[in-house]
Design a protein around this nucleic acid. Structure first.
Lengths: 218, 218
DNA sequence: CTATCAGCCAAACGTATGTTTGAAACGTAT
DNA sequence: ATACGTTTCAAACATACGTTTGGCTGATAG
């Protein structure tokens, strides 16, 4: 078994640098030198840079999706009603609270997700879809219960819109904060923005569907 | 003056490849060979790769922001009321209609914007902010008129959320479409998604602000 | 004590990148 | 036709990257 120190130091450093500068812009040399390990360690322990990236995501998403599954179990068992507020609240509290020891970790989580989604080459995207689409579908089913009047197709897109709002905002927070600071002289933490996000998303998800038929291609 | 052919062929090819694969992942050799021009042409006409990227954005955003400014003038002159639907409608119609000769161009526009925003190194972001923050602020002022009950700070974030929903969804449309096709057996064009986006964003922007004070530090 | 083997290390390898160079080709005004 | 400034071109340059190599280290088992 790999000695704990090296592998974890690589993962810790890589996730920070990937979140800060992106995958292509972060070299293995930057990671290893900052982590204080030898350059060859990455290929020795992970096999390749791409495998490193996947490992970083796996360490993030596996605990998250397990916890989300458990919370949804809990919700179903205790009869808490499916409202948009409840379903989205679970997700947000989990995203913010999965690593209570390090509040900045949540920001890294979102920035990494943003990087993954804007990555045009789809290797990583397919990997994520394969490993985590089940929990995602379950989430969407609960939301559908919450807003039965919204057609499933419409809801699918609204979930995508919500994902976009969340990931985009929280992954770009650093720069947005400087803008908001300049214009409003005020800070904003990840938790703050999340609180603002909730009513926005709820309002969007349960908005009335216009009854004029959408032009859906003949 | 530069010969029109070479410069435009480079810009045409670069914007497509940047949108498809990202900035770092697109080499000058890929651009120049696909464009049928010499490798050195990029550095000769633009100076550097980074300048090329900025030139691509300028060609996109300058006409867009000019047209948006004109439309807002028009709106103010003709006394059309500031409602979220009207303001957002103007933006969307413009984004979709600025290049009527090529409907795919709108998709490229959104993909490029997504690339720009997810780019963690802030050179491009600062450039965009410097050149286009004025129109952006004007847009936000109109929205503020539309929803006077939403505090300015709250509205600022809701605009960011909206931007995220738009850019994220439309820039990732290609892959999202394959998902939605698999789950719902249905296509979706940029125009379709835009139609779905509008009620979602309006619902989010004019959602009631929770009166419990936000935990803002302390 | 010695053999073993996973982990570590410095060094090198091959490749791809952005950029620069100097000469050729071109168009245009004299 | 000639001279001149601009544009194009093949080639080379320097650098950075991901990956591989072969030997070294140190703990563990026989």
């Amino acid at each position: 078994m790999a000695q704990a120190g090296t592998v974890d130091r690589i993962l810790d450093t890589a996730e920070v640098l990937f979140a800060q500068k992106g995958f292509a812009e972060t070299s293995l040399r930057a990671i290893t030198s900052k982590a204080g390990v030898n350059l060859a360690a990455v290929n020795y322990h992970f096999g390749s840079k791409e495998a490193l990236i996947q490992a970083v995501f796996e360490r993030f998403l596996t605990p998250f999706s397990l916890a989300l599954d458990a919370k949804l179990d809990e919700m179903e068992a205790s009869g808490i009603p499916d409202t948009p507020e409840n379903v989205l609240g679970i997700v947000f509290r989990l995203a913010l609270g999965t690593h209570p020891e390090d509040p900045q970790r949540a920001a890294i989580f979102f920035r990494l997700s943003g990087q993954a989604y804007s990555q045009p080459q789809s290797h990583l995207r397919e990997y994520l879809h394969q490993h985590y689409s089940a929990v995602f579908a379950r989430l969407q089913r609960h939301l559908q219960q919450a807003v039965p009047d919204v057609p499933p197709m419409e809801l699918f897109w609204r979930v995508q819109f919500s994902l976009g709002a969340v990931i985009f905002t929280l992954s770009g927070m650093q720069s947005l904060q400087s803008i908001s600071k300049a214009d409003f002289n005020m800070d904003a933490s990840t938790a703050d923005i999340t609180k603002r996000l909730l009513p926005f998303l709820v309002g969007g998800i349960q908005a009335e569907v216009p009854d004029q038929p959408l032009h859906t291609g003949k």
